[in-house]
């Protein structure tokens, strides 16, 4: 981790916690690290001296009045959401089921291509002995294409499944009545 990484990381975390005058802190630590480096330390040593991103962040947060998002507004929003449930509920459900269906289709594609690929691959070995090498090559080519497609669909399935899971989790956290940590 060099100085720029440190500052970028710090900036990201300060932003996440909603520290208002983040730039002042970044300027201060940038200048300080420059001075340390000028005095003969390496980037790493300078960052070690300052104590690392986590420690600096804690120091800043303990000193700043970090504004935690209001819950009353959120409660009001939740009320409207609940009142509108008959309206948007079916729409969201339909969307969700559609997405689930698409993801399931990806899984089916992955399984179908994968099984077909393995089957054709095995049978291409048989073809070598039954017919000739050229036929076997043809079949091997088809088998590799099928296997490739199988793995591509499998990866897409995992990616989209994870995406759905993460976004569901995010939505759940966002709309759960408990206050965010």
């Amino acid at each position: 981790m060099d100085k720029t990484d440190f500052l970028i990381d710090l900036q990201k975390k300060l932003k996440r916690y909603g520290v208002k005058n983040a730039n002042d802190y970044l300027d201060y630590y940038s200048e300080y690290l420059d001075d340390l480096i000028e005095s003969g330390l390496t980037d790493m040593q300078a960052i070690d001296r300052v104590g690392g991103v986590q420690k600096v962040l804690l120091e800043i947060l303990s000193d700043e009045d970090v504004v935690i998002p209001e819950t009353s507004k959120k409660a009001m929003g939740n009320l409207f959401l609940a009142l509108g449930l008959p309206l948007w509920g079916p729409l969201v459900a339909a969307l969700y089921i559609t997405v689930l269906g698409l993801i399931f289709a990806l899984l089916v594609c992955a399984l179908a291509f994968g099984v077909a690929g393995v089957w054709v691959l095995i049978s291409s070995l048989v073809v070598v002995f039954q017919m000739n090498v050229l036929y076997a090559m043809f079949q091997l080519g088809v088998a590799l294409m099928l296997l490739g497609l199988g793995v591509i669909f499998e990866q897409l399935f995992i990616l989209s499944g994870k995406g759905l899971f993460d976004s569901s989790k995010y939505l759940f956290q966002k709309f759960s009545p408990r206050e965010a940590r």
């Binding site: 002042d24 802190y25 201060y28 630590y29 200048e31 300080y32 001075d35 340390l36 005095s39 001296r49 300052v50 104590g51 420690k55 600096v56 120091e59 800043i60 000193d63």
Partner: peptide, 26 residues
């Protein structure tokens, strides 16, 4: 003076860490 020099000058007298100096200055 500036941040780094303040800490260096005060070091023999009293230890200030770089992260405590900024809140003081602010």
């Amino acid at each position: 003076s500036y941040g780094y020099a303040i800490i260096q000058d005060l070091k023999p007298l009293i230890e200030i860490s770089e992260s405590t100096l900024y809140p003081i200055l602010k």
